[in-house]
Simulated scan of single mutants.
Amino acid sequence: MTESNALIDPFQRKIEYLRVSVTDRCNYRCGYCMPEQGVHPEGKHTEYLSFEELTRIIAAFTRLGVKKIRLTGGEPLVRKGLADFAHDLKQLPGLVDLALSTNAHFLDKHAAELAPSIDRVNISMDSLDANKFHHITRGGDLAKVMTGIDAALAHDIRPVKINMVVMKGTNDDEIETMVDFGIQKGVEVRFIETMPIGPAGVSMMDQHYAAEAILKRVKDHVGTDLIPSQSRSHDGPARNFKIAGTDAKIGVISAVSDHFCASCNRVRLTARGFLALCLGQEDGMDLRSPLRDGATDEELEALIVKAITMKPERHFFRENVHNIEFRQMVSLGG
C-alpha cells in the first residue's frame, strides 16, 4: 500500500517529519527534562529497538512521504554505532533532511564521522556560565559543549542551532548574552519556553518565560528590527527572525504561550518503539510488538497510516499542565 504523502491526519495536516529517540539515556540531568536518577534505570537492553528495527520503521515512514528525520534522545551520542546508523538512513529514498539533536558533550569525537550523513545539528546549551551550566545540567561540562560546537562548524555540519530553554530566575539574565554569542559564533540561537511534560517539566512551570517577552528583550538589546524569516522545512515549530543589518538569526519556540498545533507536521518514535502523536496527549501506537511479531513492511505501513488518523488536534499545555505527567521529555525527544 506504499503511497507518497499518504500521511494526512484528521485535520488535513501532512505528516512529513519524524523525530526518532534512539535512547532515553543521557549523561546530563537537566531539571526540565528528566529526574536526577534518570529514567527506566531497570530497563533491559532488549527493550530498545535495534538500529535494524529502527531502520525498518523509518523506511516505512519515508515510503509514506516523511522527508525529514531527526535523531534525538536522551542523548543520541551515548548509543554506540550512531554514525553508521545515520549513514544507513541517509541512503533511504525520499529522505531529504537528516538532523541531529545533542547536548554536544561527545560531539567533538564524532563530528567527522557524522558529517557525511547529518545535514544540521541542534545543540542544547542553557547557559554560557560554566558554574550555572553545571548546575542546570546537574554535572554538565560547558567546555565540552563549546568544543562540540567548534567541531560541528569545523566539519561543516550546518546550520548549527543553539537551543536555550529560558527559565525565569535561573538563566533569563543570559538572553542578551546568548544573542551576542550567536552573532559572534555564526550560529542560530533559539529560545524555548519551558513545557509541562512529565513530573520534571511540570515542576519547572513556575519558571516559565513567555516568548513575546524574550523577543522584546532581544529587540531592545540589538537596537534594531527583528525581521520575520521565511519558514523552511527544517525550521520546525520555531518562529525565526533575522536581526536587521546582520546575517544573524534568532528563533523562539512558544509551545505554551502561543501554540503552533495548527501547523504540526511531526510525530515521535521512542527508543522502545512507541509512536507518540503529540507531546501533550496520550495518543499513540506500539510499533515494537507487531514488528517483533513478524509484521511485513506493508503491515507496518498500514499501522502507521492508522496511527496518524488518531493524531489529536492540539495539546492543552495552558489549560491543564498536569495532563501529561505520565511522560518524560527525555523519552520523547522534545
Rank of each mutant, 00 (worst) to 15 (best):
F274G: 05
V252H: 03
R266S: 04
L275E: 08
K249A: 12
D247Q: 14
T270V: 12
R266P: 02
N240P: 03
S254P: 13
N240E: 01
L279C: 06
V256L: 09
S257C: 11
T270P: 13
A276G: 12
F260Y: 02
L275N: 06
N265G: 12
R266L: 03
A262P: 05
A238P: 02
F274P: 04
V252N: 02
D258K: 13
A276F: 11
I243D: 01
D247W: 10
S257N: 12
F274A: 07
I250N: 00
I250S: 02
A271N: 09
V267T: 05
S257R: 08
L275M: 12
A271L: 07
I253L: 05
G251S: 06
R266I: 01
A248L: 07
F260D: 00
I253Q: 00
I243T: 04
A262V: 05
A262H: 09
A248T: 06
H259I: 10
A255H: 05
R268D: 04
H259L: 09
N265M: 11
F274K: 10
V252F: 07
R268K: 14
A276R: 15
S263P: 01
L279R: 04
D247I: 10
I250H: 01
V252S: 04
L269W: 06
R266F: 02
F241I: 09
T270G: 11
D258E: 15
R272K: 15
N240F: 00
D247F: 12
K242N: 14
L275P: 00
L279G: 04
V256Y: 06
A248H: 03
A238M: 09
C261Q: 10
I243S: 03
T246L: 11
A271I: 05
T270S: 13
N240W: 00
I253Y: 00
H259T: 14
L269V: 11
